[in-house]
Amino acid sequence: MKIAIYGQYYKENTEEIIAKVLAVFGYYKPQVAFESNFYDVLKENNLLNEDFPVFSSHKELDGYNMFISIGGDGTMLRAATYVRDKNIPILGINAGRLGFLATVQQEHIEDLLPLIFEGKYKISSRTLLTLDYDGKDKALEDLDYALNEVTVSRKDTTSMITIETCLNGDYLNSYWADGLIISTPTGSTGYSLSCGGPILTPEVNSLVITPIAPHNLNARPLVIPDDTFIELKVSSREEQHLVSLDSRIISIDVETTLRIRKTDFNINLVEFPQEKFLDTLRKKLLWGEDKRN
């Protein structure tokens, strides 16, 4: 088995996580490669006692069987831009706080990680969104995928913006708000949720349109089929507005038509029987918790 490992930061628990991961690998003997920047960080902190191959882009991941992300949900989102259309399952080891995507907690590494070698896991297929617009910089093509959401928002102003929204060529609404979120089922537990959007289970073939602080309180979140072609056009007092794809933010001129659609490939997340989505939902959102009982 060939395994790629990715992380973004060195944290207090990184040493313990790496030690546990390498201990499991020492027993099963997979071929292991580290993302180059993460590898340098681990070397600088003396966490690796041998040399490993490195990779720096999705083009170098041919032939890999598993992609392990070490960090929080933000690291998982960045991991998706490496894997893209290669259908490599992504396993998230949580070194952060919330962990909706990175569901393997460090105290369970030694119990759960061996299951990938024994084939005792399931694949949760997740929808991705892609963004296109006239004048798009070709340098952004490797980063134009969003696992959670595509968001338009105001820039350099306290004034609201107007987001003209069309679905499959038909006019829906002009949202007068701070912004608008186009969320996948995966992202429905993130920014969209904090703005009042509904939670979707991962297997639902839908997207959510959620306005951010709309001035018209009748503008409610809307669930649409995930094969809907979405067009957005922002009007503002400023010359530019912001567009974010997960955590990656760019500035785009107002009156530019943004074209958002589902990609023709999905991201595959590893799911263990002990860490199902509904279990994660209850634990992370504290459903059923009541101090009176």
Score class of each variant (00 low, 15 high):
I3R: 02
A4K: 06
A4D: 08
G7F: 10
Q8F: 09
Y9C: 05
Y9P: 00
I17V: 15
A23Q: 13
V24E: 02
F25T: 14
P30W: 01
Q31A: 15
L42T: 12
L42R: 07
K43F: 01
L48V: 10
E50M: 14
F52Q: 04
F55R: 13
D62F: 11
D62V: 09
I68N: 07
I70C: 11
G72L: 09
D73Q: 12
A79N: 04
A79G: 07
N87L: 10
L91F: 09
L91S: 06
I93L: 14
A95T: 07
F100P: 03
L101T: 01
T103Q: 11
E107L: 07
L112T: 07
I123N: 07
R126G: 08
L129F: 04
T130F: 00
L131C: 07
L131H: 08
D132Q: 12
Y133V: 03
D142E: 10
L143W: 01
D144I: 03
N148G: 05
N148E: 06
T151I: 08
S153T: 12
S153Q: 09
K155C: 09
T157M: 03
T165A: 07
S174Y: 06
A177C: 09
L180V: 01
S188Y: 08
S188C: 14
Y191D: 02
S194H: 08
C195E: 05
E203A: 12
V208C: 11
A213I: 03
P214C: 11
H215G: 10
L217K: 12
A219D: 15
L222I: 15
D226Q: 14
D227Y: 14
T228Y: 13
R237K: 13
E238Y: 03
E239Q: 14
Q240N: 13
S244M: 06
L245W: 08
I250L: 08
D253C: 00
D253T: 06
E255Q: 15
T256R: 02
R259F: 01
D264E: 08
E271D: 10
E271L: 03
F272D: 12
F272G: 14
F272M: 11
R282L: 02
R282E: 04
K283N: 11
K283L: 05
L285N: 00
L286T: 12
G288R: 12
D290R: 15
